[in-house]
Simulated assay, not measured.
Amino acid sequence: MNMDIAVSYEIPDAQEYNNLRIISGLSPKDEVGSEVGLKNSIFIVTLRDSEKLIGMGRIIGDKGCFYHIVDIAVAPSYQGNGLGKRIMSEIDTYLKNNIPKNSYVSLIADIPADELYKKFGFEYSAPKSVGMMRKI
């Protein structure tokens, strides 16, 4: 496998974004919603093998107090090569260099990805608080 992976900060198109989500085991999103959401991201990092999107992650939030890490995804055939760590390193560097002190950075971790996030200083919020969600 070619591991000459290019790191980019350009917004992927909605279709390739959804394709990556689906093959990575994440839920598909509405294409119009995807276009709006991607455009409104605070920070996006993508990994490409040639032109093919094979990994990504992004930060969303209010650009002041609250930041949420989403869409950490790596195509299955590329998993196990440290690419999730590479994505999180890019996100961590952005956070350290660009957000105000005492900002709250959160994420929802699927198991076993929680082990990756622990390496970047994330801790479980329970029992003081727990993640909640609602799909519309």
Rank of each mutant, 00 (worst) to 15 (best):
M1Y: 05
M1W: 01
I5N: 02
S8V: 02
E10M: 13
I11P: 03
P12C: 11
P12I: 11
D13K: 13
N18R: 10
R21V: 03
R21W: 14
R21L: 12
S24R: 04
S27W: 00
S27T: 07
E31A: 06
V32G: 00
G33P: 06
S34F: 12
E35I: 14
V36C: 06
G37D: 05
G37V: 06
L38E: 09
N40P: 03
I42R: 12
I42H: 01
F43Y: 13
V45C: 15
L47F: 11
D49S: 15
K52I: 11
K52S: 04
L53I: 12
L53H: 14
I54V: 15
R58M: 03
I59T: 04
D62R: 06
D62G: 05
G64N: 07
F66M: 08
Y67D: 11
H68A: 05
V70C: 15
V70R: 12
V74W: 00
V74D: 05
A75I: 10
P76K: 02
S77L: 08
G80W: 04
N81M: 12
G82F: 04
L83Y: 15
K85Q: 05
K85V: 10
K85T: 07
I87L: 11
E90P: 03
E90W: 07
D92I: 00
T93E: 14
Y94W: 13
Y94D: 01
L95C: 10
L95W: 06
K96D: 06
N97R: 08
N98T: 13
I99S: 10
I99A: 01
K101Y: 10
N102E: 13
L107F: 00
A109R: 04
I111P: 07
I111A: 11
P112S: 13
P112F: 05
A113T: 13
E115I: 14
L116R: 01
L116E: 00
F120Q: 13
G121L: 05
F122L: 07
F122H: 13
E123M: 08
Y124N: 14
Y124V: 06
A126M: 05
K128V: 15
S129W: 00
M132Y: 00
K135Q: 13
K135R: 14
K135Y: 11
I136C: 02
